[in-house]
Design a protein around this nucleic acid. Structure first.
Lengths: 218, 218
DNA sequence: AATTGTGAAATTGTTCACAGCA
DNA sequence: TGCTGTGAACAATTTCACAATT
């Protein structure tokens, strides 16, 4: 029997949350957790937690809850973070440096195996153990180091060029930190992270003095 | 007459997109834009664009479209980015430095007016024109510099402590880059940006070879 | 007694379709 | 004619409520 169900973006996002929570709860010595435990710490409802998990099978025990370690492992497997990913970083500037030292990336198995830049002064130099390559050698490096994900951390003006290089090199997933809408073929996954948009969100709520849910207008 | 309508997170998020798009279109010389123009560049439907805008009044002209400049100004006003915000940054490490140089912040009116750290070697030194203050002087600095938003860019282990300091200082909006779930009183706005969760998203889709919409299970 | 797993109901969000206007 | 503004229809998501299970 094959069931087709739609998994929403929010469900995947919440799986990431559950994963972190389970790691924390495991550390606190919880051998089992209930949907209530998980929901409570994330301001969600227990029903939603159960529904999210039920998309991928049933691994709880009625009356008891979920086995912490097993559920964590299962979610890691669903998210694909029970393995290592070879990541290439483009841009050895401020954001790039921040990402290289971002422990959370490595902890989740995202290993930065190559750094690219177009600044001749930076190329060839060593950045936390990784020699910086010329952006134009991307295709060769992607092949040699089996890079699977490219993180773009260059100024907006060159981001599309970098993106095109990555696509040409055969990359299938791109995480973009440049504040620009990149164009990619439809088979390439693109996720754009715009930090300004996050702060605009706060600005909107501060301006309208809202409690994150209602607005009144005349 | 007072109408109460729910404005969703996605609507606000899309307003940010429209704002950027309008800025671009204005630069390209468009005096008016249609909902179709806006929708097309963002993979949305024209109806959705119109619906989003209609929450805040009607500023289009039937048959013609929306006046680019006016609509952009109106959205800036709705988002609260037609003014300056005094922002305090906590953490002069990698992510902090990246944010200080992030042009998009200033362009949108988010001015970093103070930087805090707890490293005695950094305190007192000058970082892009801003003298780094002691984290423990936050309350005084918030008052003196009229800081309205605090950006947390410190390691996860000290993030809650920093958050508490900010709340005590009377801050009402916090943008958090530490990969941890902060606890704030309900009147304080909190937005947490977890870069690892963004890449996990890519990992999920790569692992399950999905086209961002369906999953098959047995 | 506690808690899962899941159809059904309720709610929220998106798209349609068209009247109304420039 | 072209395009907005919006109620109505539709679709997706969340919550409810309860049988099933330990």
């Amino acid at each position: 029997m094959t069931i087709r169900r739609r998994i929403s973006e929010s469900t995947i996002h919440r799986l990431s949350l559950y994963y972190r929570l389970l790691a924390a709860l495991e550390g606190e010595g919880y051998h089992t957790v209930s949907s209530k435990d998980l929901a409570h710490r994330e301001k969600l409802t227990p029903a939603q937690v159960r529904k999210d998990l039920s998309f991928f099978g049933s691994f709880g025990t009625r009356g008891l809850g979920y086995p912490t370690k097993e559920l964590k492992a299962r979610i890691a497997n669903i998210l694909g973070i029970d393995r290592q990913w070879n990541v290439g970083l483009v841009g050895a500037g401020n954001i790039g440096s921040a990402l290289v030292s971002y422990k959370e990336f490595q902890k989740q198995g995202f290993m930065i195996k190559a750094i690219f830049d177009n600044d001749q002064r930076k190329i060839g130099s060593n950045h936390k153990g990784i020699v910086i390559s010329d952006m134009n050698d991307m295709a060769a490096e992607v092949k040699k180091k089996k890079l699977e994900i490219i993180v773009i951390a260059v100024p907006a003006s060159v981001a599309q060029k970098v993106c095109d290089l990555a696509v040409t090199a055969g990359i299938k997933a791109i995480l973009n930190f440049a504040p620009v809408n990149l164009k990619v073929p439809k088979e390439v996954l693109l996720r754009t992270e715009n930090m300004a948009m996050e702060i605009e969100f706060l600005s909107f709520f501060l301006t309208n003095r809202l409690q994150l849910d209602n607005i009144e207008r005349t």
